[in-house]
């Protein structure tokens, strides 16, 4: 990325929320702010990250879940002010950056193997 653009976005997004690192294959819960009229509430969306797109502040990620047997995907901009919190539930072991093959799978076949992480002081 261009260093001037990085400088600009660094100043403009200086107060943006910091989220934990996650990768495609991870299972995450995204808490998303929804405004209805003048009321604001938070809705959780839990699923597997199937792609992370873009760099810097333009990064978006797609979360896929199965809802009553129907696949539902949502794309979130990582630095959107509506993304309240991202929680990493499981770290997955996958061999691709884009998990589009998940769209053709359901049930047992769509499970993502969990990565066993040795607990150390660094990642605890």
């Amino acid at each position: 990325m261009n260093h001037i653009i990085k400088e600009v976005t660094d100043t403009l997004f200086a107060e943006a929320k910091q989220h934990p690192d996650f990768k495609p294959g991870d299972n995450v819960t995204v808490s998303y702010k929804i405004t209805e009229g003048n009321k604001e509430r938070i809705q959780d969306f839990r699923g597997d990250v199937i792609q992370v797109n873009g760099v810097g502040v333009t990064t978006t990620f797609t979360v896929r879940k199965l809802s009553n047997g129907v696949g539902v995907e949502r794309i979130f901009p990582l630095f959107s002010p509506f993304v309240d919190k991202i929680e990493v539930n499981k770290v997955g072991r996958v061999r691709r950056a884009k998990l589009y093959y998940q769209r053709n799978r359901k049930g047992k076949a769509s499970r993502i193997q969990e990565k066993r992480v040795i607990a150390t002081a660094a990642n605890a």
Binding site: I4, V8, G56, V57, P77, F79, S80
Partner: peptide
């Protein structure tokens, strides 16, 4: 022209 990016303006 440096390039393009995106910002959030009132959501």
């Amino acid at each position: 022209k440096v390039g393009m990016t995106s910002v959030f303006d009132n959501g």
